[in-house]
């Protein structure tokens, strides 16, 4: 139903090539997340799939049918925008009904789908309001409702939660995940947020400057990042990257150890340093350590009860089997 294939797709704005030739296949029913630093081309890629931008070259196929030159209306995809992009002059009901009206869905069927979507999204009481009279979370749900009722081949989300506060974001994240489980429709989701990417995705696509650095399941990327960039990008806080003599010991140009894979002690260990800051999150504490001679700052995760202060000396020891090794090109050494 919703298999999307990109074949040597490129995009240039004038002289600037934003997406060099790119291949990607998204399987039917998959939840795919695009991540990458700001300006790397996530939105552009999404808009190419949506048809809101024309590809410069290459092929896009939806359900193995060529879609490269189809207008957005004909691609059978639904999109949820960061700014919600609701129609301000229509009530919530009319907003949700709009795509069905365009598709010529009969009135009673429209009503049925609106009611279903509204109850699923907790919007039943707001159907007669206008977008201007809703909160941010409610607006986002209306935008999702508007996407659902079309029964699209795939949903496209461009940072849909970034305008919401943290608590709401968690709630909406779960709702979208549930929605995906229920509908089993392909979803492509663009985000900045590590947690969103790790928790929601079946498959994560890491982009840098329009190039796909790695595609894989969240844990695959976490456990076996293909290169230094992915290693640094996936996981929070960031992986500690160490060069020099210590790396050479492991026959590598660079080695990487995640904060959660360092063991800290006040008495003994491999590397000695001084605590600069300790961030107490309750369940966990993150220590930022300097003076190890390995990297400027090392981050380490310790239990909530591990009690050190600014200036205290700590010893760090990496777990032997959790050390990632990278060669001179930054590629992973297996």
């Amino acid at each position: 139903m919703g298999r999307i294939t990109l074949d040597k797709v490129t995009k240039a704005f004038g002289e600037v090539e934003v997406i060099p030739p790119l291949d990607l296949t998204i399987e039917d029913g998959e939840f795919v997340v695009f991540v990458g630093p700001s300006g790397c081309g996530k939105s552009t890629l999404l808009r190419l799939i949506a048809g809101l931008e024309d590809v410069t070259s290459g092929e896009i196929r939806i359900d193995s049918k060529p879609a490269t030159h189809l207008p957005p209306a004909k691609r059978g995809l639904a999109m949820v925008f960061q700014s919600y992009a609701l129609y301000p002059h229509m009530t919530v009901r009319k907003n949700i009904a709009f795509p069905m009206k365009m598709a010529g869905v009969p009135e009673d069927e429209q009503k049925r789908r609106i009611d279903a979507a509204a109850s699923a999204l907790n919007l039943t009481d707001y159907l007669e309001r206008r977008p201007g009279q809703l909160s941010g979370g409610q607006r986002q749900r209306v935008a999702i409702g508007r996407a659902i009722v079309r029964e699209p081949a795939a949903f496209l989300f461009d940072e849909p939660l970034s305008n919401l506060d943290a608590a709401l974001r968690v709630g909406m994240r779960l709702e979208i995940s549930e929605l995906h489980k229920r509908l089993e429709t392909t979803m492509i989701y663009v985000t900045h947020d590590q947690v969103e990417a790790m928790t929601m995705a079946d498959k994560i696509v890491v982009l840098q400057k329009g190039v796909i650095e790695q595609v894989g399941a969240p844990l695959e990327l976490y456990n076996a990042p293909r290169n230094k960039f992915v290693a640094g990008f996936i996981g929070s806080p960031k992986m500690n990257l160490i060069e020099g003599a210590e790396a050479t010991k492991h026959d590598a140009q660079t080695i990487g150890v995640r904060p959660e894979h360092l063991v800290a002690s006040t008495t003994e260990g491999d590397w000695k340093g001084k605590v600069v800051v300790s961030e107490h999150l309750g369940s966990d504490t993150f220590l930022h350590v300097e003076g190890t001679g390995l990297a400027e700052l090392m981050t380490v995760r310790v239990g909530g009860e591990f009690n050190v202060n600014h200036g205290d000396t700590v010893y760090l020891t990496p777990m032997a089997d959790k050390i990632h090794r990278f060669d001179a090109q930054g590629l992973r050494i297996a």
Partner: peptide, 17 residues
């Protein structure tokens, strides 16, 4: 905002609509 018009396009509206 152009996004609202893009949303309409995504929602299946022809140029006229």
């Amino acid at each position: 905002p152009g996004e609202i018009l893009e949303a309409a396009r995504m929602d299946g509206a022809s140029l006229r609509n």
